[in-house]
Simulated assay, not measured.
Amino acid sequence: MQFLSNLSNHQRRLSLLLCLLTLAAGIYSGIVQQRIVNPLLAPLDQQANSALKHSLMLSSASFATARLIDRGIAFVSEAEVGVGVASVKPGQLLKPLQDMAVRYSDVMVVAMTSIGLQLFLLEFGKLAALPLFGGGMLASATLLLLGPPSWRRSCRYLLRGFIALLLIIRIGIPLAAYGVAGLSDWVLTPQREAAEAALQLETAALQRTEQPALSTEQGSLSWLKQMAAQANDLFAAMKSFSDNMVEKLIQLIVVYALQTLIFPLLSLYLLWQAGRWFVLRPIPLTPESAIPAH
């Protein structure tokens, strides 16, 4: 600091410009990213990546369960049971549960999309955030040093913007993903595990019931009888769903909406507000910038 204070204004700018050129060479050669930034942030990246992949696996399994419930109820809904000379379709009584399963599968699709987007941002931050936003920072700092005084305020805002984007993408996104995973494990995991265990228990009978294949030796009449028997078995399995299955599905929708949509969006909103405050906070006037340019 004493050395810099003894330099003239021109020498000080030249020294800072040489520092910027050295930093640019380190960034675009990959030395800063591969040997300093990525190894330093590797534990956070691994924790965030592991948490997101675990959430993606749970969402995929829940989507498969929802589709199984939907297919099972659709199959039962088409089965007719003879009552005297008439026939009825008792599976139609399970239509509300089928509708809820469809809504649940839609939420799982949105959840998997959200997690996939977060994984993309995580990989983007590791590979391209520093060269992209670091280049913007270097260009803004160069304009701040060499540009006319009338550009300084705009260059400072631009420099702050690139710094905020770099910190949000490279550090904020992994930290938010890891924090959301920790919060979800602490608050939501017991409810999710209990609801999924109840669904898996009730759908176990559905997984063992399959549609019979048509055999040319037995003929169409025998196949239809097997279909009726299978439909009755499947209807009995579906009837084993208790009245609280809809409540369990609603509970899972709330849990996954919080874990994969609301919590990540809230964390991104907070990061955005922090970056916006960093960019838009007042810039103190220096004696040089207070003098109007002629």
Results as ranks from 00 to 15, higher is better:
V88W: 03
V279A: 05
Q259I: 01
L14H: 13
A86S: 10
F120T: 03
S267C: 11
E217L: 13
A194T: 06
A64Q: 14
S222T: 13
F124A: 03
V32P: 02
T260C: 15
M1H: 08
W272G: 10
I36S: 07
R281W: 04
P264L: 05
Q251R: 11
N232G: 13
I36F: 15
R12G: 06
Q92L: 14
L93Y: 13
P90Q: 04
A290F: 06
A290E: 08
G275S: 00
L14S: 14
A141H: 03
P264F: 01
W223S: 05
I31Q: 11
Q191W: 10
L16H: 14
I163S: 12
Q11C: 04
S55E: 08
L166Y: 05
Y269H: 09
L94V: 02
L261W: 05
I173H: 00
P264S: 07
R71P: 01
F120R: 00
E123M: 15
R156M: 14
I283D: 09
R103H: 12
V76Y: 05
I169S: 04
N232M: 12
Q46I: 07
Y28I: 05
D70P: 00
L127P: 02
L121M: 07
S220A: 14
L268W: 06
T22M: 09
R152T: 12
I69Y: 02
M137Q: 14
L4W: 10
G84Y: 01
T260Q: 10
P131V: 04
